[in-house]
Amino acid sequence: MTDPENPDWQPLSRRHISTREQALLEGVPDHLVRPLKTWLAKYLADHPKLTERVALQTRIALDTPDSEQLVEAASANDLSVLLDVVDVVLHLDKGLWWELDVAGPEPTMEAGMAEWIPDFSWPKGSKAAAVERLDEMLMDAGSAFEVDWLQRCLRRRVDATVASAAEQAMSKDAGTHLRAAWAATYGRHPDPAKAYDEAIRAAEAAAIPIVLPKGTRETLGKVHAHLRDAGDKWELAIDGTNDGSVAPLTEMIGLLWKGHVARHAGSPAFRPQRQDEAQMAVHLAATLVHWFSTGAIRPRRRSQA
Rank of each mutant, 00 (worst) to 15 (best):
E277W: 08
G27P: 01
L40M: 12
W257F: 13
D276G: 07
R20L: 10
G231H: 02
P248K: 12
H264D: 13
S293C: 11
L256S: 05
A199N: 01
L32M: 09
A163R: 06
W182E: 12
A203F: 03
E218R: 14
V289D: 02
A163P: 04
S75T: 04
E106S: 04
P268E: 00
L90G: 06
G244Q: 11
G231F: 04
S293K: 01
S143T: 08
L255F: 07
A165R: 05
K127A: 06
A180P: 07
F120C: 05
A129H: 08
K258M: 05
L255G: 15
D87W: 08
Q57A: 00
L288H: 14
H226W: 00
M139V: 11
A207G: 08
R300C: 09
T294Y: 07
T19Y: 09
P248M: 14
R152S: 04
Q57S: 07
A73R: 08
L134R: 08
R15I: 09
I60L: 04
W97L: 09
F270T: 08
T219Q: 15
V71T: 10
G104M: 10
L50T: 06
A269M: 00
E218N: 09
W234H: 05
D46W: 13
S67D: 04
D84S: 11
A74P: 08
K222R: 14
E115C: 03
W257K: 07
T176I: 11
L32Q: 04
L44H: 01
L32T: 00
N242T: 00
V88W: 03
E198Q: 10
A41N: 05
G259K: 05
R301N: 13
T216D: 02
Q273Y: 05
S293T: 08
A269K: 11
T294V: 09
P272W: 09
